[in-house]
């Protein structure tokens, strides 16, 4: 029973991490139909901001966390301003290629100016410890990650439901022109979407780095891939889909980790993707997506 509870918490924390990343991808996609494959580099940049801060300024360790989140958010906004805005009205493939370009550029800048090898990054000691809930000993980072995910998603919902810019973002997902006709500035909506995606990526980055204890230039690739899979699994473009997809993906990974015999445990991701594939064969619109036939009317 204890083991089950421990693994459930583990699943929630991994799922929450994927959900945070997937939501970031989805929120940008919903507004400008761009799959931002440079999303992973936000994690890397947040991480390197921590590393460089330690190297040059040596601030207290807890101060690294806001630095990471802030730099990820700032980088997202810069990506939008410098790279994506000029190609905003170009065909979707141009945006996709631009995203890959940004991704490769950032990775190589980190390789050239820092190093190819991983660099250690400290996170506060208490994040690496365990805590007792009842008679259960659980890693602090998992508890924290689950709580922070819930808080971040609540915050996101409040933003989307209670603020003018949130309403505009939800409406723009369906009909951007009419939103602009209401006097809402397109740049503001898009920049907010990127800022939110950067914020969520920065939060996820803190946890990713606290687990790894190090940064490397290519560390963003696997997380963004997982986030993309989570989005597809949930139903691309829908925020609810990203959330559900992220949680399901995280739970599936932890579940397989637990049940797979040790000889094949190394192929865990293959099994996960096989499962995702099977789900999509049965439900191609994603877990919470709505089935759309060619020729169906938009709402």
């Amino acid at each position: 029973m204890d083991y089950f509870l421990q693994q459930s918490l583990n699943a929630l924390s991994v799922g929450g991490e994927y959900a945070l990343l997937a939501l970031g991808l989805a929120i940008v996609f919903s507004v400008i139909r761009l799959v931002n494959f440079a999303h992973g580099e936000l994690i890397a940049l947040g991480g390197y901001a921590m590393y460089l801060s330690v190297l040059f300024a040596a601030p207290p360790v807890y101060a690294l966390i806001p630095i990471c989140i802030f730099v990820a958010m700032l980088s997202a906004v810069c990506f939008e301003r410098v790279a994506f805005r000029p190609v905003r009205n170009a065909p979707p493939t141009t945006g996709l290629l631009t995203a890959f370009g940004v991704s490769i550029l950032v990775q190589n800048i980190l390789v050239i100016f820092v190093a190819t090898r991983p660099k250690p990054v400290p996170t506060p000691d208490w994040m690496g410890g365990t805590m007792s809930i009842g008679d259960l000993d659980v890693p602090v980072v998992q508890v924290l990650e689950t709580i922070v995910t819930v808080v971040a998603i609540t915050g996101l919902l409040l933003l989307l439901r209670k603020t003018q810019i949130g309403l505009a973002m939800r409406a723009a997902a369906k009909d951007f022109v009419t939103v602009r006709m209401m006097g809402v500035r397109a740049n503001r909506v898009i920049m907010t979407a990127f800022a939110v995606s950067g914020l969520l990526a920065g939060i996820a980055a803190v946890f990713i780095i606290s687990r790894r204890g190090a940064v490397d230039p290519f560390m963003g690739f696997i997380p963004v891939l997982k986030a993309f899979v989570a989005c597809v699994l949930g139903g691309f473009g829908s925020l609810a889909g990203a959330l559900v997809g992220g949680l399901v993906l995280g739970c599936a990974e932890v579940f397989l980790q637990v049940v797979l015999p040790s000889q094949v445990a190394g192929f865990r991701d293959a099994f996960v993707f096989l499962m995702v594939g099977l789900i999509l064969v049965m439900k191609p619109e994603g877990l919470v997506g709505k089935k759309v036939e060619l020729g169906d009317k938009d709402e």
Binding site: L167, R170, A171, A173, K174, D175, T178, M181, E299
Partner: peptide, 11 residues
């Protein structure tokens, strides 16, 4: 008020 109404369907 645009042709086809174009209300924000999900709002």
């Amino acid at each position: 008020t645009p042709e086809g109404r174009r209300v924000f369907a999900d709002l």
